[in-house]
Amino acid sequence: MPDEKLELPQGTLDLLLLKTLTLEPLHGWAISERLQQISREAFQVQQGSLYPALHRLERKGLIKAEWHVTENNRKAKYYELTRTGRKHLKDEEAAWRKLSAAVACVLDIA
């Protein structure tokens, strides 16, 4: 395991979870693996907070869950973006880009 793990800023976990689901429905384990790979192992999602976050998103109606069989013939709960979820992701993504650009701007000047 790499030593330098980044702590996720508050509220960004939801955004990242939604983003991982844009291409295809995934189960919790795959989501956590994919997040780690895509971020080049920069952050490891605390597995303890992964599932509560998924259930919270489901409750908000941003994702929905269904049980499917995996390639290895195991039953797993797959999460999928809902239409509201897609829209929410788009909005949040735009907001995040704006924020990070602004922060970068300020840092560059100083």
Partner: peptide
């Protein structure tokens, strides 16, 4: 890593 099985479950119940 899951932070304890029962604890994780409890957190999920909270989230629900």
């Amino acid at each position: 890593r899951l932070g304890g099985f029962e604890q994780a479950k409890e957190n999920c119940r909270d989230a629900r």
